[in-house]
Design a protein around this nucleic acid. Structure first.
Lengths: 181, 181
DNA sequence: AGCTCACTGAAACAGTCGTTTCAGTGCCCT
DNA sequence: AGGGCACTGAAACGACTGTTTCAGTGAGCT
């Protein structure tokens, strides 16, 4: 009945739904308009994802995969500051804005509604990022430094998304990097 | 017909709806359950707030008022670091967690859906906080410092809301304050 | 007494929601 | 040739959505 594993059609539709969700958000996503936009039908989405919650979960996992793909690219013992610099360069790029918006939306939703499809999304991404930052530092380094760098990155991203002021937020981030070394 | 100004019953119901929204979120708020919970009816809510969007707008304004009430309390020429310290003390208090959750939810929603009732919420709160931080500094100070402090506070709040780890996030904030002076 | 005005109840409206039921496709495998 | 398997279309289900219509309350004022 329900379908959790991969299948050609499933991944194809997931990809299309992901693109759709990136610029309309997931909050008031609904099956019929989505299906119409990606050339499918509610019947099929339900068949392939089991339920709407299943679809949302798949979309959130897809978004997280995008994020992890980025994080993996800087796995190495470059210091914390260098890692932060690269992460910011990625986050500030305009083409990643939709993903970041989606990220904030999902983060907030998973805080308010800790059960259901959104459950654990916020905590999962915090852990993802902290783990990657830890991998950039020598073992035994102060966890507070990683937490601080993560906070600066995310706070700056929030600011950037709302104000679109790359100069000011970028300056703040460079200021932080200066203080850090 | 529609009602935008204040009225005894309106503010009373707004307050009740605000408390209701504080722990169930605003994302899938719906009139009938809300009305039942606060001892009213959809008819009356629509009469007093004009539409559901009007109600949402009123709730967001109410949340922002809570936030501004805090910000006003540190209007004075204490430095940036001292201001950040007090803001963090407020944000880290467990009783303010629901408000912060609501804040993140509204922030994310207003980024994804820039029209309608949520419009401008994210930008408005960034401006609110930056203005207050500016008032804590001597005129002509570097705006990047304010932006950085705001980013740290908000990033730390995001982390705290997701992980509930006051020790680690608090340590990160104190580390930042140390770097700042 | 009569009138205004803020507020309210009950019920219906038209629409959307996620999901289900039933009935198929067409392709692959033996 | 035939049986399973992945996928699909059409239509309906019941529940819920915001909103409207109509018809009142009851208190305060003149």
């Amino acid at each position: 009945m329900t379908q959790d594993s991969a299948s050609p059609r499933r991944t194809e539709l997931l990809e299309a739904a992901y693109r759709y969700g990136l610029d309309r958000g997931l909050a008031d996503l609904s099956l019929r308009p989505l299906a119409a936009a990606i050339g499918s039908s509610p019947r099929v989405l339900l068949f392939l994802f089991g339920s709407k919650d299943g679809l949302i979960r798949a979309l959130l996992a897809r978004a997280r995969a995008d994020e992890l793909a980025l994080l993996d690219r800087l796995d190495g013992p470059l210091g914390l500051a260098a890692a932060a610099e690269r992460l910011w360069a990625w986050a500030a790029a305009p083409e990643h804005r939709p993903l970041l918006r989606l990220w904030v939306e999902a983060y907030g939703r998973s805080l308010v509604e800790p059960d259901g499809a959104w459950a654990g999304f916020a905590k999962a991404t915090v852990d993802d990022w902290l783990a990657v930052l830890a991998a950039c530092e020598p073992a035994g380094a102060d966890p507070a430094r990683r937490t601080l760098v993560l906070a600066v990155l995310r706070g700056a991203i929030l600011d950037l998304l709302a104000t679109d002021d790359a100069d000011r937020t970028g300056a703040a981030l460079r200021l932080h990097l200066g203080l850090l070394r």
